[in-house]
Computed example of a mutant assay.
Amino acid sequence: MQTTLVIFMVLAAVATLAVLARGIIIMARGKDITGEKSNRMMSLRVALQALAILFIVILFLINRPG
């Protein structure tokens, strides 16, 4: 169970990094005048970060003593 959660946490963190990099590339190119793609990438990044934090919290709850 713990190993699975750690794997999911790492995957969520890597996905967050990938979305962050993609968002930065989109902004750097300057072709997204309306900012629609940038906003979508930011929303996805926040969701993936929340998912990674959720996995961390679950791991802490599973591993707490008592």
Rank of each mutant, 00 (worst) to 15 (best):
A13W: 03
M42Q: 15
I58R: 02
Q49L: 10
L44R: 08
A52L: 04
A50S: 14
M1C: 09
V14I: 14
L48H: 00
I33G: 09
T34W: 05
V19M: 09
T4L: 01
A28I: 01
L5P: 07
I24C: 10
V57P: 02
A12S: 04
S43G: 11
I25E: 06
R64P: 03
D32C: 05
T34P: 04
I7D: 13
L51R: 03
L48N: 05
A12M: 02
V19R: 05
V19K: 00
I58A: 13
P65V: 14
I56Q: 05
G66M: 06
V19S: 03
M27P: 00
A21R: 08
I25L: 11
L11P: 10
P65Y: 12
N39I: 08
M42A: 14
T4G: 03
S43I: 07
V19E: 02
L11N: 08
L51W: 00
L48D: 01
I25A: 07
L51D: 01
F60R: 08
L51N: 09
Q2V: 15
I7N: 14
A47S: 10
V6R: 12
A52M: 03
A47E: 00
I26L: 09
G35V: 11
N39K: 15
L17V: 12
G35E: 09
T16F: 03
R40D: 02
I26G: 06
G30T: 01
M41A: 14
I25C: 05
A52W: 08
A28E: 03
R64V: 10
L59T: 03
